[in-house]
C-alpha cells in the first residue's frame, strides 16, 4: 500500500498538539447539535449527520449558533471525553476561539493550502499548533 505524507504550515489560535483520523465538513458546525455522550452529529440535514466527532481531527469552515449553546455543546463533549482531538478551520470567530480555549483542544487556521483540497475524511492528520504545522498522511 502506498502512503504519502504532506506537511503544511498553519496559524495557531489555541495551542497544543492533537492527532487522529480527519473528519471533513463543508458545512459550519454547532456542537450543541451533537450527542454529548457519544459525539455523534444529530443535526438534521447536516452532511456529518450520524458521523462521530469523537477523537477526530475536525476540518470545517467555521462555527455557528449562539455563543451559549456552542460553548456548552463543546464543553459537554469534552467532559464526556468525546471532543475532537484538534480543529482546523477556515474562518475563525470569537465564539469558536472561546469554545476551543475552554476545552483545550488545539485550533488552527490559515493552512497554506485550502484545507478542503488538502485533507480528506479518513486521512491521518497531526496538528502541532505550537510548531504551526499540520501533517497529513494518506494511506
Amino acid at each position: 500500500m502506498k502512503s504519502s505524507e504532506t506537511v503544511l504550515k498553519c496559524h495557531k489560535i489555541i495551542g497544543g498538539r492533537g492527532e487522529g483520523e480527519a473528519l471533513v465538513s463543508h458545512e459550519s458546525i454547532c456542537f450543541y447539535l451533537t450527542d454529548p455522550k457519544t459525539g455523534v452529529v444529530r443535526e438534521k440535514g447536516h452532511e456529518l449527520a450520524g458521523k462521530n466527532l469523537a477523537g477526530k481531527v475536525l476540518v470545517f469552515p467555521s462555527g455557528k449558533a449562539s455563543s451559549v449553546v456552542q460553548i456548552d455543546g463543546l464543553f459537554k463533549l469534552a467532559s464526556h471525553n468525546v471532543a475532537p482531538k484538534a480543529m482546523i478551520v477556515k474562518d475563525v470567530e470569537t465564539v469558536l476561539v472561546v469554545s476551543a480555549f475552554m476545552v483545550k483542544v488545539p485550533l488552527v487556521d490559515r493552512l497554506e493550502r485550502d484545507p478542503f483540497e488538502a485533507i480528506q475524511t479518513g486521512d491521518f492528520v497531526k496538528v502541532d499548533a505550537e510548531k504551526g504545522t499540520v501533517t497529513i498522511k494518506r494511506q
Binding site: 495557531k12 451559549v68 460553548i71 456548552d72 463543546l74 459537554k76 476561539v97 475552554m102 487556521d109
Partner: peptide, 27 residues
C-alpha cells in the same frame, strides 16, 4: 488567543462589560 485569531495589533481599554451568564456547565 482571540487577539491572535484576528491578528489584532494591540489591546485597548474597555469601560464596561456584560457577561451572558447562563447557569450552564461551560459557564
Amino acid at each position: 488567543a482571540i487577539g491572535d485569531a484576528y491578528d489584532a495589533e494591540k489591546m485597548i481599554p474597555v469601560s464596561r462589560a456584560h457577561a451572558a451568564s447562563s447557569g450552564q456547565e461551560g459557564d
